[in-house]
Every structure is written in structure tokens, then in C-alpha cells.
Nucleic acid binder design. Structure first.
Lengths: 184, 184
DNA sequence: CTTCATGGCTAATAGAATTAGCCTGTAGGC
DNA sequence: GCCTACAGGCTAATTCTATTAGCCATGAAG
């Protein structure tokens, strides 16, 4: 069976599949090589090393997240936009918990532009609140903190109790929104 | 020089030092053994394996965080208590970023009671808002999400811009507080 | 037809985790 | 004072994984 020719992108595809199915810790070059039907060292023809593969995976996830965010915000503004953004973010993380966990938070030169785009979307979403300059930066940071914190904890299964998570998340959105209103 | 006798606690001490100085990824049994002046396999007399050591480290951090939280809340209530809690949390994470990153979010049976204590402190801090039962659970989740999100991002150096982080964090606290007030 | 870059391979090295099994000093029990 | 069992260290050996070096075939470009 002719397997698809390997390429950096194809390697990242396989890596993502491994991450999704077995978690970020299972992302190993030999696992990828196994799925690719290739000897481990062959991967070095496409990817510098494991660390770079992780960055590439993280970049892919960041891109998907950016897409989610931009769709959520599209055609909306104000509270509605922000709520949609938060919901979309959470839903992405909940749908792909391992993938979300594979996001590298420490800034990577390779993913800087993708990160900037995402920040740009958030800044735009905050424009309706009259936030600009430093105020917008602070607000974006808080938004990120809230979304990321919730996403990580949910993805890790840290919310143990039976209470409905949608409700919890709605409260979080309420906090963000009322905080933005009250600071106007 | 008579080195202190090894024990599970002593091993965790060394592990914490490694985490602090070199980051969580540098936490390796051979690194610990090196610092202990002992051969790697000897560590297995004190600790089941690397995974357990990580859990023990995480438990230690959780304990410290619980202490910070309980001191912050002590003698305060309402907004003041919550603000102190958030400040203390952030300051712990900022003071020990690697250590904070070594916190395992996925629930561990070994650290369940410590986690419960921490949640208990938060619930207590929320009592002034008239939150009980499910409402308190939702609020605690949001509080955790906000604090954890900010702490992780700050510890990872994800906040790149020059804007003052204290201000950003004050806004986050403002969001949490105003959200709690508005939902009363 | 020749050349050369691409992308695969094997061999080899090094570091880490983990297991098995050995050895010794010492605290008690006699 | 002697014997025994256990605690805690050690060495040897295995298994994974990452990574490097260097070889080889193939196919496109000249």
C-alpha cells in the first residue's frame, strides 16, 4: 500500500494523531516513525528533532485555535462576540483536550505571528468596550488567563464535582464581561 | 562530609531544588541521585518511580500553595480576602515559576485531601458573598481558572508586552469580584 | 548519460528508567 | 557477646528513546 509521501506537514499530522489518541507524553519520534512506517532516523529528514516537532504541533494547534476564535468573533461584537469567543475556545479545548495540552505557552519564535494574530482578534473583540492601548492589553491578558485557565483545568479533568460545567463557564464569562463593563 | 540520610522527604527536597533551578523537565532520577550522592537505583528504596516522585513534588507544591492561601485569607473577608488570595497565589507562582509548573492538575489520589483543603479555603472565602452549594462550586471553579490561568501564563513568560503585570492582575481580580457581586 | 539532491536505511552512541540480585552494617532478641 | 533480619546502598543488565554519521537508491535536471 503506497503510503503518502512524508513531509514536515505529514509528520505533524501523524504527531497530532498520536497526541489526540494517546496524549502529549506519547508523542515520541519512534511512535511517529512507527505510524509513518519508517525508521526513526528518517524523520530527521523532515524535522530537526523532537523539540522542533513539539513546536510545530503547538503551532498547528495555535492555528486551529486562531481559526476558531476568528469564526466566533465574525459578525458579532461586544458581549456577544466575547461570549462566543470564550465558548468557542472552551469547546475546542474540550473537543481536543490532549491537543490543547500540547500547546506550548512559552513564546516560540516560530509561532509568534500566529500568537499575534490571536491577540489581534482579542483586541478587536474588545474594541466595543472602548478599550485601547494599555487598557486593551490588560484586558486581553485577563481574557487569556480566564480562557486558558478554564480550558487547562477542564482538559486535565481537574473539575471533579458533578456541577454542570456549562454553568461554571457561563459564570466565568459573566465575570469577564461585568469586569469589562465596570471598568469603562 | 556526612550527607543527611536519605528518605522520601529528602528525595522530594532534592527534587524541588532541581525543579526550581533547572525546570520541571530536568527532574530526572539520575539528577536527583547525583545530588544525593547516590546511585540512581538506590532511589527506588525511597520512591516507587519517577511518576510517583512527580506526584510527591506536586503534592508538596500544593501544600505550600494551601498554606499561602490560608494565610492570605486569614483575618480577612469579602473582597479583601479574595484579593489577598489572588495576590498570594500569583505571588507564589511568580516567586517559584518552575515549581508552580510542576503542579499536576489531573487529580491524584495522593493529593486529593490537599486539594480539598484548598477548595475548602476558597469556598470559605466565598461565604461572604452568600454563595453556597452549587453556586459556590461554580464560583470556586472560576476563581481557580482565573488564578491558575494567570499564574501559568506568567510563569511561562507568555505575557510579553511591557505593560505592568500588577495592573493586569488587578483587572483580573476586579473581574472576579464584580462578577461575584453582579450575580448575587 | 551523468549528476546530484532527496529521503530512506543501518549502525552506533549516549542518557534515562527500571528490575534483579548482592552485600553490609546495625538494632534487637536471645 | 552472638545471631538474624531488615534497611538501604551497590553493580549489572535490559529496554526505550533521541540523535548522529554515513551509506545507498531513485528520479529529475542538465
Amino acid at each position: 500500500m503506497a503510503r503518502a509521501p512524508l513531509s514536515p506537514d505529514a509528520v505533524v499530522d501523524l504527531a497530532l494523531r498520536i497526541v489526540d489518541e494517546e496524549g502529549p507524553d506519547a508523542l515520541t519520534l519512534s511512535a511517529v516513525a512507527g505510524r509513518a512506517g519508517v525508521a526513526t532516523p528518517s524523520l530527521y529528514k523532515h524535522v530537526r528533532n523532537l523539540a522542533e516537532l513539539r513546536v510545530l504541533v503547538s503551532g498547528r494547534v495555535l492555528g486551529e485555535l486562531t481559526e476558531v476564535a476568528s469564526e466566533a468573533v465574525l459578525g458579532r461584537s461586544g458581549d456577544e462576540a466575547l461570549r462566543a469567543l470564550m465558548d468557542g475556545w472552551r469547546s475546542y479545548a474540550a473537543r481536543h483536550p490532549h491537543r490543547y495540552s500540547a500547546l506550548i505557552q512559552a513564546p516560540q519564535p516560530e509561532t509568534a505571528e500566529a500568537g499575534d494574530r490571536l491577540v489581534g482578534i482579542m483586541v478587536a473583540a474588545l474594541r466595543a468596550y472602548g478599550l485601547e492601548g494599555s487598557a486593551a492589553i490588560h484586558a486581553v491578558r485577563c481574557l487569556r488567563a480566564a480562557m486558558h485557565g478554564f480550558a487547562v483545568l477542564e482538559a486535565a479533568g481537574a473539575f471533579q464535582l458533578a456541577e454542570n460545567l456549562d454553568e461554571s463557564h457561563a459564570l466565568l464569562a459573566h465575570m469577564v464581561l461585568s469586569g469589562l463593563h465596570a471598568s469603562r
